[in-house]
Every structure is written in C-alpha cells, then in structure tokens.
Design a protein around this nucleic acid. Structure first.
Length: 806
DNA sequence: AGCACGCCGACT
DNA sequence: GTCGGCGTGCTC
C-alpha cells in the first residue's frame, strides 16, 4: 500500500487552508520526506501549484480518487519538524494561512513562481497569432494578464480548444557553483601513473604529484591552478586520463565582507555584567526549562558583551544561538563585532541582502555551517538545530511585530521556540516594553539589571526647551536660540552634533502652536486625527467625529494647525541659520539607494560633516566619540498620535537618542525641543527615569484599560463597496456582542483613518479583553464564515496584537 | 486563486 | 434558439 502525502498547497484562501492528500508515485517512495516542497495538480484543468508535504500517512482520510504528486522540488526537506509545528501554531495564533506561515519562515527564493503558458495547438486566426502570440507558438500568460481584451480573446481560443494552458512551477532557488577538482586515484595508483607517462611530460608529472598530495581532498579549480602553477588545459588533460574529475562545488555568496583572521577575545566583565552573564550562562548549561530573562541595562552598560559571552557559552556546549536586533541597528559596525568574535560561524540575515545571499545564508544555517545567527525580525525563523540561546536586543522595538500577514510578534515566536528547544531566552533593553517589564514584575520573567555604564561616564545632561514662547516670538522655526547657540559652540570647538527630527505621525494631528493643546476624543482620551477628505477630526478608535477647529479651544489662539515637517525643510533652514556647518541629511529619501546608509554614517564618522540631521533611523546603535550634542527638534510628534503606546514610544526614542551623546571622553549634552515641556514622557526621559515612567504609564494604561492590563485584538473588514463592508462589519459586531464574555469590551465598528484604500472601504473593530476563553475560537469561526454567502469578496483580517488602533 | 457549472438577458 | 454575463462551489 503506497503511502499518501499530505500537502499544504500554495493557494492562500480560507477554503484551501488545510492539507490535501496525494498519491506518492512508486519511483519516489524512498525519497519523499515530510518538509519537502512538491508540485501538485490542483483543481480542474491542468493547474499545477507548489506545496509542502506536512505529513505522510498510510491510508488517507480522504476517500476520493487521489492524484499523484507531479514533482519533488527538493532533494531534502526545507522545513524540519520544529518549523512545521511552529508554522501550524503560528497560523492558528495569528489567524493566517498555514501556507503563508510556511513561506514566512523561508527565504523568498524557495517560493515557487507559478507560471501559466499559453500554447497554440490548432490553427488560429492570423490576427490573433500576430497580436496575442507575436507569431510564436507559446507565450507567458502573465504578459497579457493586464490587458482584459487580450485575456478575453485567449479565453475564447481556449474554449475552442485551439490553445491550451501549460502550468509550471518554477523554482527560484539558484545555487552558485564554481569548478572543483576531485582526485580520483589513491596515492599508490598515482605513483604507478607517474611511472607510466613519458619522461619529458613535465606538466603531467607535476599534475600527478599535485593530485597525489591532495590526499583525495576536493579543491576549487581556481585554487588548484594557483597552487600547482599548472594551466587549466593540463587539468583538462588530467580529466581525460581519468586522474581527476571536475565537479561543481556549491559556493555560498558571503554578505558582510570577509571573515576576520584574528578573533576578538572576551572582555573583562564588571560586577553587574558578571551577575547577568552568570545567571544566563548557568541557565544555558542546565539545559532545562528556564524563565526568560529580561536584561534591563542603561545605554552603555555593556549588554552587547554579555550577549557575546552568552553566545560563546552556548557554543561551548555545542548548542547554537540566535540573536535578533532591530533592522536599523544591524549596521556594519555591529556585524563586524559578531564576525570578530565568532568568525565564519556567524550567519547574517538582513533585509538588504539580495535574494540569493539570503538563500545562501539560510542554507549555511540549515546545513549546520553557521551556528550563530544574527538578524532582524524574520531571522527568528532561522532553522538552527539544537538551539540553546535566543537573544532579542532592544526588545521594546515595535518593529518586532510584523504588520502584514502573518502578523506575528517575534518575541512571541521566540518564546515558542525557546520552549520547544529548552533554549534560554534573553530580552534586552534600556527601556523594556511595558509588557515585558510587567511580566518581570509578576515573576514570569527573571529580571536582570545593569545600572552602571561600563566607562563610568555619567549619562548626558538633558535640557528641555519650551518651543511655545520661541514660536510666538519668532514665528515658525525648528530651531530655538538655545539650540542654535549650542550648535554654534560645537561647530567652533570642532565637535559634532546629531539632530533628530521626529517624523512619526507626520501631519496627521492638529496642535496649537501657542499653548500646545491637542484635540482629543471626549470618549477615548486619544488624540483625533485630521481627515482631509471629509474635513473632520476623527477618532479612529470609537468613531467620534467633529469639525476641524479654527481657533484653539483652550487658549483661543488661531495658531492651531496640523503639525509636521520634513528633514529637507529643516536642512534648508539650518543652512540659513548656520551657513558654516557641514550637514549630512539622513532620511528615507537620502538612504533609499543600497549602501547609502552605511556611506553617510561612515562620512560622519570620518568627521566630514559637523551635523548629522536625520529621522528616527539615527537614534539607534550609532557610536560616534566626537558627538557631544544631540538635539531633538520636535519631541511631540510621536506623543500625540492616536496611539495608546505613543508616550511609551516617545520615552523610548528620547532615551535612545540621548544615549548618542558623550559616548567617549567628552561629556554629552541633549536638548529636547517641545511644545509639551511638562509632559511626563518628556520630563522623565530628561531625568533618565525609566522606573517612574513605567509606574506612571502603567497606571494610565490600567485606568484606560489598555495593554498590558488588557489584551487587544483588531478585526478589519473591507470591500470595494462601502455598504457591503459596513454590513459585514456590523454582522460581525453583532456576533461578538452576543457571544463574548461580559467583561470583554468591543469598540466600534469605526471607519479606518484612510477609510478607502486601494479602492476598498475599511472598517474595524477593537476587542479588549482580560480573559475570554471562547474569543479565539469565535474569531477563527468568524474568519471561516466569511468565505461564505453574503460575504463574497469581503476581506477580513484579524490582528491578535495590534500596535496601534488607528 | 482559478476553474467549471449553471442559470438569465441580447444577439448571429 | 445560442453566446456569454457573473453568482456559487470546489479543488486531494
């Protein structure tokens, strides 16, 4: 009885979100394994799609006629048991398709490209032959897919059976090969050959002794030529004589430059570092279950060195280690540090790698060549075997949450993997997320604290500049006289400055330039966003709406307007105010080109500029010894976003950016310009007082019923027609109201800020709950129902951990 | 997603 | 009478 393969197919819809049974042809009975990619026929016609074998069982539970697998795409599995289990859990946990989760874990190169070719099999009209097929026998359907008229004509031809569709799944995975030389004979046989050749055949003689000395070892032809001094022709001759064989050697594209020759040594740890490292390394060695560690260390407390030594501790007992960092801090400096300590054992997964590089790094991890992985969010899926340690640096970073499907939070995936592998999980931050910190508070995490800076330098002094009088005195400006004076002073002393422009929530809310008043929702205590299309201020949390104010309701000033500014404008202003200063501007515009990010930072590091002006991207991980002044031009923009995490993000950002000043000998100074000089997020950031911020913010969250006191789920419905979307969301709201626990709060439905996106109308519901045992099941059911009657073409998305509610 | 089946309006 | 519109249901 042939085995049956259970295959999850690459058709991301609700109805097909389960494995399908396929017959395994006898010729592959020995080769197929769970976790391999396959090509299978799917549906009517001759459609072929890619899929993953997720199980193999004896008789199938399906009693219809099975179709056989079309092809195996991999010689060995690309998904191991752990990843398979993880993908299944993730799909359920994030309300995503299983297939989407599988792809999320793999390099893009492994996503097969579905091709549909149209082939002529009978006489067709001259006009069709010319206009559709350009007089060829076969074309790719994709080339005409965007021209409805041609599609129609092709469909007609297909009906008449004059053309057929030929479906192919094209594997994008490309390995790079270089020529290699493999000696075929053993030592003695080479000796015999040498006796046999002509006395004057010097080249052949040298080739034979070269091959003899290889001792059967495989070498790259390029190296062989160099080492032996022989020509490629001689090696060709050797192949003909049967002395050697030319074989392709897989080459791994190596991003991040060469491996250093000399590895760095561990640094001596101070008392606090020793305590932290001691606890972590002991947990690693014990190999059992351990609570996650929350490593709370001020900027400059030497967290990185603790991480490095913890990784070394894992490697010592032959385990592997995975480290996540925010994309933006995955700088060449950082890569150098890891490569410097662990050399070729490190694989780097970075968004700016090419598809091929990414694939190669992934294969190095898969085959065990790399035992340490450093990367951004998606690196949490790195297929390391025998995982002993997972580190998430800057764990509070919102970027660890993926904002499109599958909407996973890397921290949560890390917990799953650490559980599965009995691996130690370390979450590190100077300003832990409220979620993590409160978990530490109740004992779910083990809290480790490092309060001292390694170099014993004090944290930079920080001053707050109230921009309200500045603007009323001097009109619109991004620079207070105080900040300008300090910039001029640094310029004169030949020291460098960093200016950060906070662009979060660019021009989306209205603020009074006179008193700092921000219009808030009367029901939700969250600021209203400007909705230009309808000329209203709207709360996207509860749906409240009111007209755009002309005068400030608080101080009756007319200087109420929406707030937002760009780096370009600031740079222009700066050039007028401080013409002597050399400025490097860094934002999405100037760093779009590959490598620009690094180049600009390098230039600044080489002191080719006096001022680095940029957006949030300059707040993290940069370390320039000559920077003694950091200015935050507009601390407020993040603060008044309609986002319950706004204060937290502002505090984190200010703490983060302050850490950029005074890294070396010279003391640093920080200037924060704001229209809200008394706001607690700003004053507490000034005092570097995380503890008090934590207490204050937790209190607010408690009173407003936000995370971490409540969990939140965001559900969205969209449709091309507003009435249909509205009907759908109302029906869902109804279901929720009647079924959920009384303590669960259902907010909305309300339209999204950009109610119409991509020609679709969006509505959303936010559910806040403390404990609701049936919620998950109910949501899953709602998702299933949506693919049926009345919900045609309605798109439902559910986000189990929304970062914001707008 | 992509395809077929099936039931209603305007055409060779 | 049939061609083709898209609403509905299914894919191992």
């Amino acid at each position: 009885m042939a085995k049956v393969a259970q295959v999850v197919v690459d058709v991301p819809t609700m109805q097909t979100n389960h494995p399908y049974s396929y017959e395994i042809p006898v010729k592959w009975a020995q080769t197929v394994q769970i976790g391999m990619r396959v090509v299978v026929p799917f549906g009517k016609g001759h459609r072929q799609v890619q899929g993953f074998i997720v199980a193999m069982d004896q008789p199938s539970h399906y009693d219809g006629q099975l179709r056989p697998l079309t092809a195996l795409m991999d010689p060995e599995p690309v998904v191991n048991q752990e990843m398979l289990a993880l993908s299944k859990w993730l799909a359920d946990d994030t309300y995503s398709f299983w297939i989407s989760c599988l792809y999320a874990m793999l390099p893009a190169a492994l996503k097969g490209k579905n091709k549909r070719l149209v082939r002529i099999v009978d006489e067709i009209g001259e006009q069709d032959a010319a206009e559709i097929f350009h007089n060829l026998d076969e074309i790719d359907f994709a080339t005409i897919a965007d021209q409805p008229e041609l599609v129609q004509r092709v469909t007609k031809l297909k009906k008449q059976k004059k053309v057929v569709f030929d479906y192919q799944v094209e594997d994008r995975a490309r390995k790079k090969y270089v020529a290699g030389i493999k000696p075929l004979l053993d030592f003695g046989r080479y000796e015999d050959e040498r006796q046999a050749i002509a006395k004057n055949a010097h080249a052949q003689n040298r080739l034979l002794s070269y091959l003899q000395n290889l001792n059967g070892q495989l070498v790259e032809q390029k190296d062989a030529i160099k080492a032996s001094g022989l020509s490629a022709a001689t090696f060709r001759l050797g192949e003909k004589r049967g002395w050697l064989k030319k074989v392709p050697i897989e080459e791994y594209r190596q991003p991040g430059g060469p491996i250093p020759q000399q590895l760095t040594r561990p640094l001596k740890l101070n008392q606090e570092q020793r305590v932290a490292f001691g606890a972590i390394s002991q947990a690693i060695r014990s190999g059992g279950h351990s609570k996650p560690f929350l490593l709370e260390g001020v900027t400059g407390s030497g967290k990185t060195e603790v991480y490095l030594q913890a990784i070394a501790a894992a490697l010592d007992i032959h385990k592997t280690a995975l480290m996540l960092v925010p994309e933006i801090s995955l700088t060449p400096q950082m890569v150098r540090q890891l490569r410097g300590r662990f050399g070729a054992k490190v694989a780097i997964l970075h968004s700016s790698l090419s598809q091929g590089e990414r694939y190669d790094e992934w294969r190095r991890i898969m085959n065990g060549a790399a035992q340490v992985v450093v990367g951004a969010r998606s690196a949490i899926f790195a297929p390391l075997k025998n995982l002993g340690l997972i580190i998430i640096d800057e764990e509070h970073e919102p970027n660890y949450k993926q904002e499109d499907s599958p909407r996973y939070q890397a921290r949560r995936v890390a917990e799953w993997r650490s559980h599965y592998n009995h691996a130690v999980l370390v979450l590190g931050s100077a300003t832990p997320s409220l979620e993590s910190r409160s978990r530490a508070h109740v004992g779910l995490y083990h809290l480790l604290r490092m309060k001292q800076r390694v170099n014993h330098h004090p944290l930079p002094s920080t001053e707050i500049v109230d921009m309200r009088p500045v603007v009323s005195r001097e009109g619109e400006t991004n620079f207070s006289p105080r900040l300008l004076a300090l910039l001029a002073d640094r310029l004169q002393k030949r020291e460098q400055s960093i200016l950060m422009l906070n662009r979060r929530g660019f021009s989306s809310f209205v603020m009074c330039r006179h008193c700092g008043f921000v219009l808030k929702c009367p029901n939700c205590d969250i600021s209203l966003t400007l909705h230009m299309a309808s000329h209203t201020m709207r709360c996207h949390y509860c749906g409240h709406e009111e007209p755009i104010p002309q005068v400030c309701p608080q101080c009756h000033s007319r200087k109420i307007r929406y707030y937002g500014t760009g780096t370009e404008k600031v740079a222009t202003e700066l050039a007028q105010l401080l013409p002597a200063a050399r400025v490097i501007r860094m934002d999405v515009d100037t760093t779009r080109r590959k490598g620009m990010h690094e180049r600009l930072l390098k230039e600044f590091g080489e002191q080719k500029a006096d001022i680095l002006l940029g957006t949030q991207m300059i707040a993290k991980g940069l370390d320039f010894p000559n920077v003694t002044l950091v200015g935050v031009l507009n601390a407020d923009t993040g603060l008044d976003l309609p986002d319950f995490r706004a204060s937290e993000h502002t505090f984190d950002l200010l703490a983060q950016v302050s850490g950029r000043a005074g890294r070396a000998q010279k003391p640093g100074h920080v200037v924060i310009q704001t229209f809200n000089p008394t706001n607690y997020a700003i004053t507490l950031a000034q005092q570097h007082n995380y503890e008090k911020f934590f207490a204050t913010e937790m209190n607010l969250r408690y009173r407003a019923g936000y995370p971490p006191y409540y969990y939140a789920v965001k559900l969205m419905a969209s449709h091309a027609e507003q009435s249909v979307a509205l009907r759908a969301i109302n029906q869902i709201a109804q279901q929720l109201h009647t079924n959920l626990a009384p303590s669960t709060v259902v907010l909305g439905p309300s339209p999204r800020p950009i109610a119409r996106m991509k020609r679709r109308y969006y509505y959303q519901i936010v559910i806040k709950y403390k404990k609701d045992p049936i919620l998950h099941q109910l949501l899953t059911q709602i998702l299933n129902n949506t693919q049926q009657k009345g919900f045609r073409d309605v798109q439902i998305t559910i986000d189990p951990d929304p970062q914001y509610f707008m």
